[in-house]
Nucleic acid binder design. Sequence first.
DNA 1: AGAATATATGAACACATGAACATATTTAAA
DNA 2: TTTAAATATGTTCATGTGTTCATATATTCT
Lengths: 122, 122
Amino acid sequence: MSDVKESIERCNCNVIHEDVVEKVKREMPEEELLYDLAEFFKVFGDSTRIKILYALFSAEMCVCDIAVLLGISQSAISHQLRVLKQARLVKYRKDGKVVYYSLDDDHVKKIFDQGLLHIQHG
Amino acid sequence: MSDVKESIERCNCNVIHEDVVEKVKREMPEEELLYDLAEFFKVFGDSTRIKILYALFSAEMCVCDIAVLLGISQSAISHQLRVLKQARLVKYRKDGKVVYYSLDDDHVKKIFDQGLLHIQHG
DNA sequence: AGAATATATGAACACATGAACATATTTAAA
DNA sequence: TTTAAATATGTTCATGTGTTCATATATTCT
């Protein structure tokens, strides 16, 4: 029987600090959690969605208001609201034909603030 | 002369809460800042980069170590480290042929923690 | 100087993604 | 029950992105 570990992890270089790699491997969260985290941040990786979220920091808004505010088509806004909804970042309330969206998360503001701190290179 | 504002912002719906839109418009940060913020979060929107950053939470590592740890090619790791470097999230130190990477930001951990809090739906 | 090693880089390819457009759905009013 | 209005959804298209492969650069060792 050949060594499994050896066949899986192959690298074209030799400087492997085994102790460091093992230590880090033990401290790393599960693969799936890190995947989910990346998916979560992917939602923030689009300026249209960022703008929508920032708008909702100020007030609850209907789809049309957001479209007018940002100068983007209603369809595009609706598609992005869907993404934000799936990520459980916004919630909505219906009033007749009009759908009002608002924030559904406390962490977003903190995350954005930390991001801004980094950008304004602190 | 036609009204400029009118020609720019056109929407196929009529339910526009002018007061809300104006209020939000005043409170919104500059367009460019929001764009930069989206660009910043875009860096976190990839699981390979998330893994690299989490690895560096535990220890300084050379490129090869990271490649072995994550089971990803040296080339791919190097490309992603470049992205992280450009975002000023990691720094490096050369020791002969070996290049050691480490974190260059205090906000990342806080941002990740907030992200995890959201995921583990709090 | 030449060989070997660690990392970086360029090009190509497969895949993901956002916007536009057309259309469907839902609700209210006539 | 038509009609109109607000929003949602499906499709298409152009663009962006991550990985691989090949190769370049840099550094050490002989």
